[in-house]
Design a protein around this nucleic acid. Structure first.
Length: 606
DNA sequence: CGGACAAGCTGA
DNA sequence: CAGCTTGTCCGG
């Protein structure tokens, strides 16, 4: 902030440095501050740039302008924006995920104009902590280390932990920033804290300018004791950050899909490190990344065992082939047995994979060779090109076919027939529509079903091998994450005899054993050396470069020391380095050619 | 990103 | 060579 006294003491005009809010520009420009205008680092301004008006952020004040430049004045000072430390953090994240600061600062900026943030309204006395008797013993152990990873079973109540984390931050004279995987969870948590009298800012506005969102932003900046939100809240303003907490650290929603593919957990952990605040990440199944970063804290075995619920395994190899692999007698029992049942089958559509009953040749489209073929009204129709043909095997002329793969829609029909009552379908395609009728007892869907329903008495994974064998290096962790999510649905206030049913051809798979024995540590122990041996993260740092001008980018990238360059495969290069320092320094040293190039650091799906 | 400006193409 | 398209450059 510059006062009148300073302007009197010097004839030099006031100049500030501005980073434009333009995705393609990663460069700062100097502007004059009009007389009588007060401007500080982080303020949101409008500037005249190359003949048009654009937004931007003040990244430095009291700038000595380069001589010989004719500076333009700021067009407008709109309001408050990300603080200086968040601007620095955006610079770090731009390096870490090979992106541009503007796209990160946009996340950090308020969702509307904030004229002032007001004063801290933090209570002088600490927030009403839960009685010591109600606080589980592991809460204090989890809050003790500067960098802790709490492995907490899916069914365990995390609220006492959140409460204690906020109270400890308030006691230390500041605030606690809490991340949840979804906005819905963040809203629920914020609501509960507020009802208990904790001053809370919920950073859960849905993008765009919104009065309510700007209000919450101002409240967070002004000193709310708890600041809560989903991924984007890693960039929330916080006055006097004294503690950070990430719930369900393993959840993939913490990573941004578009480049820069920043991860909220990693951003928040770095943010805490910079201000010396303790950080705690929590998960039923901590990632190898988290385990490599912090001190593992576990709960007593009985607590962990109770929180994973009961898991039952059906070995699909033992099933009667006539029934097919999806509808085991155990599944039918469970679904008929009553209670709310969610069935998960990670495939959409009606398309089936059909094989000839006589010669086992897979039925394909005669025109395009697609195997995504659907049978209706006695003939085959191709799901890709629509060509129709009679239901006859092209190889042997056989007319009988068996089903190799069932989509959700078809499975719903068959399940409905089996249990003799309505079964509702829930897939990503139905998200946003009406939520599955509360009176439909049985639902079937893709993994989205686990996100869309609030609770279930039982969850059935109809074909878990689909998850275990997914062609992604993290598929094993992700599969355990699914089981954890399902276990939480079942545990949540469940008085019934709830359980998880997992149908698989690999009943002894480490993922299934980990969930069954409520011991995710077993999986981590087997997975870590495997990743190292195969050269996958977190034993290395990786990036994938793709897009139209990827060849030009890779040309400019060259062959820096320590970075292995693989590919191109389908127009994408893979970069592998021993750590992020080496990888990100090499990426930062590369000029981007004009055109589209996507640099995905820490790629999810490889 | 998107405006400015230059170089290239077309048609009479 | 006007009038338009296409491409490259650069912003204070």
């Amino acid at each position: 902030m510059v006062g009148a006294v300073d302007t009197d003491s010097s004839d030099a005009p006031l100049v500030v440095r501005v980073l434009p809010d333009v995705a393609a520009i990663d460069k700062e420009f100097d502007y004059l501050v009009p007389p009588g205008v007060d401007v500080a680092v982080g303020d949101v301004v409008r500037i005249e740039l190359h003949g048009r008006r654009v937004g931007g952020w003040v990244v430095a004040v009291d700038v000595v302008a380069e001589p010989g430049l004719k500076l333009k004045p700021l067009a407008k000072v709109s309001g408050r924006g990300p603080s200086a430390d968040l601007i620095d953090l955006a610079g770090w994240a731009a390096w870490r995920w090979a992106g541009r600061r503007a796209s990160l600062l946009r996340t950090a900026a308020p969702p509307g104009v904030v004229r002032s943030v007001g004063e801290a309204r933090r209570p002088s006395v600490s927030t009403t902590p839960s009685p010591e008797s109600a606080r589980p013993e592991w809460v204090d152990r989890a809050l003790a280390p500067a960098r802790a990873v709490l492995r907490l079973a899916p069914g365990a109540d995390r609220y006492p932990l959140v409460q204690a984390a906020v109270a400890s931050a308030v006691e230390a004279g500041g605030s606690c920033l809490v991340l949840c995987p979804s906005v819905a969870e963040a809203d629920a948590l914020a609501g509960r804290l507020r009802r208990e009298g904790v001053s809370t800012a919920a950073m859960t506005h849905d993008g765009g300018a919104s009065r309510a969102g700007a209000g919450e932003w101002a409240m967070a900046a002004g000193g709310a004791s708890a600041v809560i939100g989903a991924r984007a809240a890693a960039w929330a303003p916080v006055r006097d950050l004294r503690r950070v907490l990430v719930l369900d650290e393993h959840d993939e929603s913490f990573q941004q899909e578009q480049a820069p593919t920043w991860h909220a957990r990693d951003v928040l952990v770095e943010r805490a490190r910079r201000v010396g605040a303790p950080a705690l990440v929590v998960s039923p199944c901590p990632t190898l990344e988290a385990l490599g970063w912090g001190e593992l804290v576990v709960t007593d075995r009985p607590v962990e065992r109770a929180g994973w619920g009961r898991l039952e395994v059906v070995d699909q190899r033992d099933l009667d082939p006539a029934l097919g692999p999806l509808f085991s007698p155990r599944l039918v029992d469970l679904v008929r047995g009553g209670g709310r049942v969610a069935c998960v089958l990670n495939r959409t559509g009606r398309a089936r994979l059909l094989a000839c009953g006589a010669c086992s040749t897979v039925a394909r489209c005669a025109e395009c060779d697609s195997a995504s073929i659907d049978d209706g009204s006695g003939g085959f129709s191709c799901a890709r090109c629509g060509t129709e043909r009679p239901m006859v095997c092209l190889e042997c002329g056989g007319a009988r076919f068996k089903n190799l793969r069932l989509g959700v829609s078809r499975a719903r029909e068959e399940l409905e027939a089996l249990v003799g009552e309505p079964v509702a379908e829930v897939t990503a395609a139905t998200v946003g529509g009406p939520s599955p009728a509360a009176d439909t007892r049985v639902v079937i869907g893709t993994e989205a079903a686990l996100h869309r329903i609030a609770r279930a008495d039982s969850v059935v994974f109809m074909d878990f091998d689909q998850e275990l064998l997914a062609p992604r290096y993290r598929s094993v962790e992700q599969a355990l994450g699914l089981l954890a999510r399902a276990a939480r649905l079942v545990e949540r206030g469940n008085a019934r005899d709830g359980r998880l049913l997992v149908q698989t051809r690999s009943p002894d798979h480490p993922v299934i054993m980990a969930a069954k024995l409520a011991d995710p540590g077993r999986l981590a122990a087997s997975e870590a050396p495997l990743r190292a041996a195969l050269g996958f993260p977190p034993s290395v740092a990786m990036a994938v470069v793709s897009g139209a001008v990827a060849p030009e980018f890779m040309e400019a990238f060259g062959r820096p020391d320590g970075v292995k360059v693989q590919g191109p495969v389908d127009g994408a290069w893979r970069l592998v380095a021993p750590d992020h320092q080496v990888l990100c320094d090499a990426l930062a040293a590369t000029d981007r050619p004009p055109g589209r190039v996507r640099v995905e650091v820490d790629p999810l799906r490889i």
